[in-house]
Design a protein around this nucleic acid. Structure first.
Lengths: 175, 175
DNA sequence: CTTGACATGTTATTGTATAACATACATAGG
DNA sequence: CCTATGTATGTTATACAATAACATGTCAAG
């Protein structure tokens, strides 16, 4: 079921190397790859990737963009899973807790993690035009956050960095 | 109406210099100072700091922490202003747009800006214990974000950086 | 004083998220 | 085998957050 994108030229958020995250490519490949790695990671962590959870992850990977909990729920319901909010939220929370998905607070939405097991708490680059989300390595950014926090005596446990702007594709098509 | 804090030893988020943001101090002083600067800034921008808007800013300054829109609304209603959600949201949106307050997405809440006119889009340090929010200078952090975004061809327009953790006071009282 | 722009007030609704409880399902210990 | 236990799922109901759409009021420029 390999296919080219038909929803956009850009494919933000795809797996490493980051340099191609926004480049045009067939992402059924990277999605499959991510799913395999996600399964391995879940196993390694003793987390159970049950049918609903796995299906939610697949949905996020297929859509390849940030999806609201109710969007996910709608798809689940259509496939015979429960059709009440907690079904979606529980699966999504599980994925987030286990590093298989991210919550994009600015969009009240969730997106599959494209680098499971690697750099958690990445920088999210959110295109305001096409709504696609890319993950960028956050190590230097987090270092800067830790530094300024430390100077105030604040201990950072988790950080969430979201940048709004224009992805390369949408900047090209600027109106 | 100067008074010492009775809700907490810490006073995160207070105005410059940042080194004292979390230090114990009388914040009625910095709040008044911020309010004066906010008025000046609004005037300079041709923005009208009307009674509701001004009152909302005062409420945020008095509370000195992130407040939900409905918390603000409740206080407004008790003082004879409108008691419907749009009243609070409009005032809050105005303050955010004019750089007088910030929206803390992680908390679905709003907090007064402690450095009106200075460094916008700061780093937010959110204490998970006392819920207090401090603003830290974000220039180096934003530089790091811009760098990684640029390497992907992404143009950053706005960024939102929120760190969860423990403020100095709450780390001391760790249970 | 009237027009136009902006601000406020109100009703109603949509969207997001969670509490609380009931049921099913796996699996390790008896 | 089976039953006790923890975990996962399903369902009902509700809480919390945000906005659409429209009516009214206010103020200053013409």
């Amino acid at each position: 079921m390999a296919h080219e994108h038909d929803h956009s030229d850009a494919c933000p958020g795809c797996a490493a190397p980051p340099q191609v995250a926004f480049a045009r490519h067939d992402h059924s490949h990277c999605a499959g790859d991510v799913l395999a790695r996600a399964e391995a990671l879940a196993e390694a962590q003793g987390a159970r990737l049950t049918p609903v959870r796995r299906r939610v992850l697949e949905i996020l990977l297929e859509e390849h963009r940030a999806l609201g909990a109710y969007d996910v729920l709608q798809r689940l319901a259509a496939e015979g899973f429960g059709n009440q909010p907690p079904v979606a939220y529980r699966a999504l929370d599980f994925l987030v807790e286990n590093g298989l998905a991210h919550r994009i607070r600015r969009l009240n939405a969730f997106a599959a993690c494209m680098h499971p097991g690697e750099d958690h708490a990445p920088v999210f680059l959110i295109c305001r035009e096409c709504n696609h989300v890319a993950e960028a390595p956050a190590a230097p950014v987090r270092a800067a956050v830790d530094a300024v926090a430390a100077s105030l005596g604040f201990t950072v446990e988790r950080s969430n960095i979201e940048a709004m702007g224009l992805c390369p594709a949408c900047r090209g098509t600027a109106s």
